[in-house]
């Protein structure tokens, strides 16, 4: 899938976080992986912020989002209208081939997700 993204919604980013009393904004991520059934996935925030009463406040270190794919998508309750994309490469093989991809989309809000880390 070289050019797949989530359909944008009708809220601004500020509206997306505006009614969050206590949450986390994962802007970018570092560690990530997914199993071969695409069922279990994990993302560890790289640049991430605490959301308090609708405002981004302090930096959050290494928040871990580890959940199933159905849980992820069923927890989405709002999607922003702004979209951002980057060029990327997806490894395919065997033998190794780099497939150019366009990756990104809108900001997405998930409700009642547990963030954790470590065993």
């Amino acid at each position: 899938m070289a050019n797949t993204y989530m359909k944008p919604g009708d809220q601004t980013f500020d509206e997306l976080i505006g009614d969050i009393r206590h949450g986390v904004y994962l802007k970018t991520f570092m560690e990530w992986n997914i199993d071969d059934k695409r069922f279990n996935e994990r993302y560890v925030g790289h640049e991430a912020y605490l959301i308090e009463n609708g405002e981004l406040t302090s930096y959050v270190r290494n928040p871990v989002l580890e959940l199933t794919t159905p849980k992820l998508y069923s927890s989405v309750d709002a999607v922003s209208k702004e979209m951002e994309f980057d060029a990327g490469t997806c490894g395919k093989g065997d033998p190794m081939q780099g497939a150019p991809v366009y990756e990104g989309g809108p900001s997405v809000r998930l409700r009642n997700i547990r963030l954790g880390g470590g065993a």
Binding site: M30, E31, D36, R42, V44, N62
Partner: peptide
């Protein structure tokens, strides 16, 4: 396994998925 990915290369924190 597959998908060994580092959270922090300097500290060595990582995860990988058994398959």
């Amino acid at each position: 396994n597959w998908y060994t990915r580092f959270q922090n290369y300097r500290t060595g924190d990582f995860s990988t998925i058994p398959r």
